[in-house]
Computed example of a mutant assay.
Amino acid sequence: MTETIHLLVEKYGLIAVFLGSLAEGESAAILAGFFAHQRIFVTWQAIAATFLGAFGGDTLFFLAGRHFSETRFVTGLRNWPGFDRAFRLVQEHPAAYVLLNRYAYGFRLVGGVAAGLSGIALPKFVFLNVVSSAIWATLFCTIGYVFGLGAEQMMGAALHKHERLLIALGIGLAVAALGWGVAHFSSRRAARREIS
């Protein structure tokens, strides 16, 4: 069973990293770095897949806000807690907002739409998004790479295939749980502020 999963990760893992990085992709990026350290992925390919997913996702959400503002998808995102705050921030500090939005877990989806609804010019957004996506992809892949190094230090130089998968699963679940907790706490806090 683990052999089959390992082969699937080797064959389709970078596609999964790309797809996972389209939205809230921290766990996908960290897993990409971990698998790069374990030599399942080539490091530059892991970073490239993460970068392309992050850049593509934010650009799609920006374009959705810019050109499809009346669709059910965009109007639904506009009703999320924190959207008004995100829209206000992008109006006040457009460059800083585009550069830093992806680090506010739980707000990347609404952040791209808010940027699209703002007056930011498309070329400026694309340039800032390239810079931000490159830094983000490198940072989170490096974190995963360091996790791989730590696992190797703790378990020995040669991690077996099933150990790699179990460690990666643990990392993915921990990051997803942490991200969910942060997003849940942030949205409840934003909802309380809006009520006050």
Rank of each mutant, 00 (worst) to 15 (best):
K124T: 11
T138Y: 03
A29W: 01
A95E: 02
F51T: 08
G13S: 10
V9C: 03
R39L: 07
Q45A: 14
F87L: 13
G20Y: 00
I30D: 01
G82S: 06
R102G: 15
G65F: 08
F68T: 00
L52D: 00
S132I: 11
V146F: 11
T75E: 06
G111C: 03
W136V: 09
F83Y: 10
G20N: 01
E26F: 03
A96C: 04
G144E: 03
Y105R: 12
G56R: 10
A32W: 02
L52Y: 02
R88F: 09
L122P: 11
I120V: 15
F41D: 00
T75S: 13
D58M: 09
A23K: 04
Y12H: 14
L14M: 05
W80Q: 12
A49V: 09
R102E: 06
Y105M: 15
A95G: 05
G106I: 02
F41Y: 07
H37P: 03
G20F: 00
T71F: 12
H93P: 11
Q45C: 02
Y103I: 13
H93V: 11
G112W: 09
E26P: 04
A115I: 06
I40M: 04
G57P: 07
A64Q: 03
L99S: 13
F62T: 01
A49C: 11
G112I: 08
T50R: 03
L60C: 11
R72C: 03
G111N: 05
L117F: 13
V9W: 01
V90Q: 04
L100S: 14
R88W: 01
T142E: 02
V90G: 02
V126L: 15
A114S: 10
A54W: 00
I120M: 15
F73Y: 10
S118P: 13
F68R: 08
S21T: 13
A121E: 10
A48K: 05
